[in-house]
Design a protein around this nucleic acid. Structure first.
Lengths: 276, 276
DNA sequence: ACATTAATGGAATAAATATTCCATTCGTGC
DNA sequence: GCACGAATGGAATATTTATTCCATTAATGT
């Protein structure tokens, strides 16, 4: 069975599908049509499900897979699962290789970070939860004061947010932990907290968010997993997954999201001010 | 096993995960962490894949599923497969969608920043002066102490550099201007200063760099134009041009350069330590 | 209308995968 | 240091799912 040309990408798959579906016998064409209409289900369905969906026998569906150039259904499904799970390069081992070959030159490292940043940004564009983002903007635009908190590697993001707010004349304070003063009582009614934290989640950030939540304040969270410890604070969760290079990440996606959030809040406030 | 409360939505799932992951024994917590970080893979993976990903035995992963309230892995996976919707058209079309939502809607702004970030990164890769970068790494690797300074929008970069150095056990201090103490006398013989500043260049940063230069200390500068005021300090000048969105920029390129610099210094030091 | 080839359905088989069970280890309180 | 229960690893088993095979049916050309 000629699998000399098994498609390796969605484009190739679609191309091939269009190409051969013309010349197919009845049942196989049913498969083609159903698949064209339900491409996204392939990754998470069984042959049985798909074949009944297409109104054919499992064996017919198998033949269809083979006509498409795959060795069988599993082979075809593998392609879809891989493209879905968009597997990120494993930079940890890639770095090892660089090191092994002696090429951990600054330029090689820079190239890795640039590439990682590019991937993270692309990923951000396709996975961000627009609804939550919009809600967060509205909530922040209505807040009399915004409190920003983030430590360790989240601190650059927190400080950039503060800078942006300050530049747009928006009342915001950065809880930076200087002098361990923890001015949590500065959080007053209707104020909103933006908490930024990544695994391993820093306790101070979680504590502040929890405190705010307990006081009845809204919390916007920027984190790397939708089910981190912030979940318990009922936060508006904006999750960004960033590609790591070894033990570090370039923060490109996180900072982009943060600045877009800040500028959106600024724009929203302008609109509100002009409106009245 | 009590599946009296099997989550039926991602929301519920995340909530439950955050709730119980605290009180879990070691292996099960590994599962929880891995799942939190890779929620999207559940729908398209097998127990074997996920459990090795989490570094546990399949049986441990099964127990995790049951703790989450499902009768087993298949049950849990079913939930994810049902709520699965293909969310990955390619980057270009997705960006179009984001943009199409209206001018200063959060998503349109996000799209701008993402695109700006990508352009900046691309630009960085082709314009950075590798020779200077290499020299800067050597100089920094040899420094007994590294002083980092950067204010306003350069501050996030400065703080991230400090974080990276600290994580790699490299002696570094962040001159953050707290209390206006300006501990310039902390800069001792052979120490190196990393000064980060963008137009309009902040005076404090320039002053510190000039002071260090006058004392005979080397200066590494990260800036947005090769001919800025840092020129006068004979600094090793790493210039990055970042694409602006309105009055803001995403800092992707600058941060990538900075982290690559820091990690390179770390790698270099490791090599030197092993060498002797 | 017949012979020949292609297409199909369905059940049998093979392979992959989930799940359970139990022996062993680890941690904890006495 | 011992006894107890909880947690864990790993292999044995059950279940699901893919795949093959072949008898049957439909299509095609002469």
């Amino acid at each position: 069975m000629s699998d000399q040309s098994a498609p390796v990408s969605l484009e190739e798959f679609n191309h091939r599908l269009a190409e051969i579906s013309e010349t197919m016998p009845k049942r196989l064409r049913q498969c083609a049509e159903f698949v064209a209409q339900n491409t996204d289900r392939i990754a998470v369905s069984t042959v049985a499900e798909l074949s009944t969906g297409a109104g054919v026998q499992p064996s017919a569906f198998m033949r269809f897979c083979q006509l498409m150039g795959f060795s069988g259904f599993s082979d075809m499904q593998k392609m879809f699962r891989e493209t879905y799970a968009q597997k990120w390069p494993d930079y940890a081992t890639r770095l090892e290789n660089l090191r092994a070959t002696g090429d951990d030159s600054p330029s090689a490292l820079l190239a890795e970070f640039v590439e990682a940043g590019r991937l993270s940004l692309e990923n951000l564009a396709t996975t961000v939860d627009l609804e939550t983002l919009e809600t967060a903007v509205n909530v922040l635009a209505a807040a009399p004061m915004i409190h920003v908190v983030g430590f360790r590697r989240a601190f650059p993001v927190a400080s950039y947010l503060s800078y942006a707010f300050e530049k747009m004349d928006i009342a915001a304070v950065l809880h930076d932990g200087v002098g361990n003063l923890n001015p949590r009582h500065a959080i007053r009614k209707d104020d909103v907290v933006i908490a930024i934290t990544f695994a391993p989640y820093s306790q101070e950030t979680i504590d502040l968010a929890a405190y705010a939540h307990a006081q009845g304040n809204k919390v916007v969270a920027i984190s790397d997993a939708p089910s981190g410890p912030m979940r318990k604070t009922d936060a508006l969760m904006l999750s960004v997954s960033e590609v790591d290079v070894g033990a570090f990440r370039a923060l490109s996606a996180t900072i982009s999201l943060a600045i877009a959030l800040a500028v959106s809040v600024g724009a929203k406030r302008d609109k509100m001010d002009n409106g009245k």
